[in-house]
Design a protein around this nucleic acid. Structure first.
Length: 126
DNA sequence: ATTCTTACA
DNA sequence: TGTAAGAA
């Protein structure tokens, strides 16, 4: 990857900074980590260190939550993205297959607000 | 002064 | 999710 991404991946931000950058409480930030939505690094005395990517992800999480997507839904979204990324690595240079197209379209639909609320369970628009 | 963990009259 | 308590 490019150095630009390496910089975004550098974990150097302490909790206090991330709190201000995301408008989230320490409680919430730690909870999302416990749910596996983010994986900050640790340093010196067991203090969490976040990268700019972590901050971006927290902002996304905050927005999804604001739109009524629950933790499970957000996890599903990231799982989808991981799967999509993995698929691309496997497909490396080959042209887009119809499978790729369908996956991309599904990711897009999910991004625009498809998953349900905590009580209604995961919605299935298909 | 900050952050961490754990727990809940 | 908030907040308190004790440690680091």
């Amino acid at each position: 990857m490019k150095e630009k991404e390496l910089r975004r991946s550098l974990a150097v931000l302490p909790m206090g900074t991330v709190m201000k950058l995301t408008s989230l409480t320490a409680r919430q930030i730690r909870y999302y980590e416990a749910q596996g939505l983010i994986t900050p690094e640790r340093s010196d005395g067991n203090r969490r260190l976040y990268s700019l990517n972590d901050v971006d992800r927290l902002l996304e999480i905050r927005d999804y939550l604001a739109d009524g997507v629950n933790i499970a839904g957000i996890k599903a979204i990231y799982d989808q993205q991981n799967a999509a990324t993995m698929a691309k690595q496997s497909a490396q240079q080959q042209p887009l297959t119809d499978e790729d197209v369908r996956r991309i379209l599904q990711d897009e639909f999910i991004r625009q607000g498809g998953l349900g609320h905590p009580n209604s369970g995961i919605q299935r628009p298909f």
